[in-house]
Write a protein that binds this DNA or RNA. Structure first.
Lengths: 227, 227
DNA sequence: ACAGGTTTTATGTCTAGACATATTAGCCAT
DNA sequence: ATGGCTAATATGTCTAGACATAAAACCTGT
C-alpha cells in the first residue's frame, strides 16, 4: 500500500483505531514520510485531503491534530432545473408567469447588498416536469448584469441563462419547509398550506450581486446529497 | 499574481471571458506552465482544484475541457446536534423517548442493505434548544456496531455517541418537507400538519450499515450552505 | 510580571525531473 | 468495414530539495 491514498488510508486507520485519539497531535510530515518511506510531499497530499474532509485540523507551526468532533461534510450538486427534471426521465417545460421591473423589497436588497428599493427585474417562472408543476421560481435579478438587448426569458429560462452567461462566484442556499401560500397553492395546483420544500439562493458575481431566487418545490420533492 | 491560486484565477478568468468557451479544449499543462512561467505541478494543482469545483473536466490523454453546464457544488457541514444548537447560542438538552429492540420495517432494512426484518435498536430522542423542542430524532441502529456493554443513550445522545465512537465511512442525506404526523405534532408541540423540514440520513461504516435516522425539525428551521 | 521583538518549527508551496496510467489515434490484418 | 494490437500523449503521481509563511516559544529590557 503506497502512494498518497495509501498514506491517507493508514493515517485514517490509526485515527479510527484510536492510536491517535481525538484531539491528539500526530507526528509531523517529515516523520511520517520517513516511517512510510515516501517523500514529504506525498504525506502532505494525504494529510491535506484528510483536512479537507474534516478528519484532522492543521496549523502551521502547531502541527496536525485529530479533530475532536469530526464534522461530516456532504456535497450538494445544484444542476440547472432542466437537467434536474430530465435526469428524472421527464420532459421539462416552463411558463414565464411574470416579468417586470419593480423596486425590490428591502429584505431582498439587504440580503444582496444593494441600495434600498433598487429597481430590479422580477421574474416568476413555473417549471413543469412531464407537464405537471415541478417548482415555482420567484427571482429578483440585478438588471446591471443583463446585456443589451436583454435575453428573452420566455424562450430560455432565467435559471439556465444565468448559469451559462453570468460568471457566478459565490453564494448560499437555505432550505426550509413552508406552508404553501395562496399564490403558490394556485400555481402548483395543491391545497393552500401544503408543506413545501423551499430553497432560497443568493448569488454574487464578479460584477456585484446577481440574483436572489426562491424555489418552491411541488410536494414530495427530495433534495439528495451524499458524503 | 503567481502561485497555483494565481494560475487558477487566470484560467478561471479566461473561461468566464469565453476565451475558452464551454466545451472547448484548453492547452495542456506543459503549455500553460510555459506560458505562466511556473512548474507543471503548479498548473496541475490549479487545474485539479478547478476540476473539483466542476468548472473543467479532465481526462488522461484526452486533455482538459471547459464544462458545458457548470454544475454548482455547495458544501453542507453536518454538525453534531448539540454543536448546532450551541452555535445558535442556546442551551442543548435532550430526552430519550423510546429505546427498544424491534424488527425493523422493510423500507429501513432495504435502504441499509440488511436482511429483512432484522432486529434493530430503535431510538427516539427529542432534542431541545433553550428548553424548547428543536428536532425529533427517530433512529434505527444496527446493534452489531454497539460494544458490550452498550452505551447509555439516556446520558449521551445516540447522535453524538455515534460520531465519536463509530467510524462512519459514507452515507447520504435527503431533505423533504412533510406535514407533521400526529406523533411529531405532539412531541414538537405544534399543530398536526404543520410543515416540517425532515432530513433522512443513512450511514455506512467500515463494518457494514450503521444507522438510518429521520430528523423532523421544528418549524422555522433553516439548513444553510454556501458555495 | 509583562509587552515587544526574535527565533524556531511545522506546514504550505514551488521546482525540475521522472515514471505510471489511461485513453485516444493510427495501423494492420482479416 | 471491423476487430485488435501498438504507439503516442495528456494527466496523475512521486521524489528530493528549496524557500515562504504563520504561529508558538523563547528571550529580552523595563
Amino acid at each position: 500500500m503506497q502512494g498518497w491514498e495509501g498514506v491517507r488510508a493508514e493515517v485514517l486507520r490509526r485515527i479510527r483505531a484510536r492510536i491517535w485519539p481525538p484531539g491528539a497531535l500526530i507526528p509531523g510530515e517529515e516523520t511520517l514520510a520517513g516511517e512510510f518511506g515516501v517523500a514529504r510531499a506525498t504525506v502532505n497530499r494525504a494529510l491535506r485531503d484528510l483536512a479537507e474532509a474534516g478528519v484532522i485540523e492543521r496549523k502551521k507551526r502547531a502541527g496536525t491534530r485529530v479533530a475532536e468532533l469530526p464534522v461530516r461534510r456532504a456535497r450538494l450538486e445544484i444542476p440547472v432545473i432542466r437537467q434536474d427534471v430530465e435526469a428524472r426521465g421527464l420532459v421539462h417545460g416552463f411558463e414565464l408567469l411574470a416579468d417586470r421591473l419593480a423596486p425590490a423589497p428591502v429584505p431582498v436588497t439587504a440580503r444582496l447588498g444593494l441600495p434600498e428599493a433598487a429597481p430590479m427585474r422580477f421574474l416568476e417562472t413555473l417549471h413543469l416536469a412531464g407537464g405537471r408543476p415541478y417548482v415555482l421560481e420567484s427571482r429578483w435579478l440585478n438588471p446591471a448584469v443583463l446585456p443589451h438587448p436583454a435575453p428573452d426569458f420566455a424562450r430560455e429560462s432565467a435559471n439556465e441563462w444565468l448559469v451559462t452567461h453570468v460568471s457566478l462566484v459565490s453564494g448560499d442556499i437555505a432550505f426550509t419547509a413552508e406552508p404553501a401560500s395562496p399564490r403558490e397553492a394556485e400555481v402548483l395546483g395543491v391545497p393552500p398550506g401544503t408543506a413545501l420544500l423551499v430553497a432560497e439562493r443568493t448569488t454574487q458575481g464578479t460584477a456585484g450581486p446577481v440574483t436572489l431566487v426562491r424555489l418552491a418545490h411541488a410536494p414530495g420533492h427530495r433534495v439528495q446529497m451524499s458524503f
